[in-house]
């Protein structure tokens, strides 16, 4: 097949790399944030015995994280690392969609879109306006 320039084993190699470097990047960012927190707040008293429920839109949370990162706030940098960790499998999902598209596997393009749709839906479902 001359059209099959992109096959499953190329995809496996790309996805393997995305997962590996994504996790490494996320951890590096989280450790940098952790070091900053240790230098600035290590003496602070912490108590996580009671849960403080929030009801915040994901986009507001992300905006606050970026604002915090701009000020060099350690906790925001850790949170950025955690976001990168969450984005890694999401990127994997998008890559699968693209590769099924290039393979002209319309059934799996459809299946990938359903999975992406459910995740997008969770943004609105989890937020009680």
């Amino acid at each position: 097949m001359s059209t099959a320039k992109f096959n499953d084993s190329d995809l496996q190699s790309i996805i393997g790399n995305v997962l590996r470097y994504g996790v490494l990047l996320a951890l590096t960012v989280a450790v940098i944030g952790g070091i900053i927190v240790m230098f600035t707040k290590s003496g602070n008293t912490v108590d996580f015995s009671t849960f403080i429920e929030k009801d915040d839109n994901i986009f507001n949370v992300i905006n606050r994280i970026f604002a915090g990162v701009g000020h060099g706030d350690g906790e925001s940098i850790i949170f950025l690392g955690i976001l990168l960790l969450f984005i890694t499998p999401a990127l994997r999902l998008l890559l699968s969609l693209v590769s099924f598209f290039f393979e002209k596997d319309w059934l799996y393009v459809f299946i990938s879109l359903i999975v992406i749709g459910i995740i997008v839906l969770s943004v609105t479902l989890g937020f009680s306006h």
Partner: peptide
């Protein structure tokens, strides 16, 4: 969104 994720 519910505040389960605590960076520290």
């Amino acid at each position: 969104q519910k505040g389960y994720i605590e960076p520290s």
